[in-house]
Write a protein that binds this DNA or RNA. Structure first.
Length: 111
DNA sequence: GCATTGACCCGTC
DNA sequence: TGACGGGCCAATG
């Protein structure tokens, strides 16, 4: 686990930076976050970093490309769905969010 | 520096 | 329409 975290200069640092910019009531996909970090195919890395920690970051806003919640979230999808609901994000009966509306985009973020 | 792993994504059967 | 496998990139041992 990177001790530098947001202070680092690597891929992980960018992931933390982007996650820190995600506003409440919005969700982001692993692939998108990875893409903003410079590697559209590194979605797995984003998940791996998420598992590491950085409790200050809203990992519960991380969802799959299809809108379904993550698989290894602490407490299960139910816990994640609960946190999202607390922010105003409504999940489907199948633990799926409406990415068409809730998907956040880092418009101001550099490529 | 090589091999293994992972909260994923896409193509195919 | 649903299930299975391979591939991708970065971090760790």
């Amino acid at each position: 686990m990177p001790s530098d975290m947001t202070r680092g200069d690597g891929f992980a640092a960018r992931v933390y930076a982007v996650m820190a910019e995600v506003p409440a009531g919005r969700v982001v996909t692993y692939g998108d976050v990875a893409a903003w970090c410079g590697s559209p195919r590194a979605a797995r890395i984003v998940g791996g970093l998420a598992h590491f920690g950085a409790p200050d970051l809203p990992w519960h806003r991380l969802v799959r490309q299809n809108g379904t919640l993550a698989a290894g979230f602490p407490g299960g999808r139910i816990e994640q769905a609960r946190r999202l609901a607390d922010e105003g994000v409504i999940t489907d009966d199948n633990f799926k969010v409406d990415i068409s509306t809730l998907l956040w985009d880092p418009q101001h973020y550099p490529g």
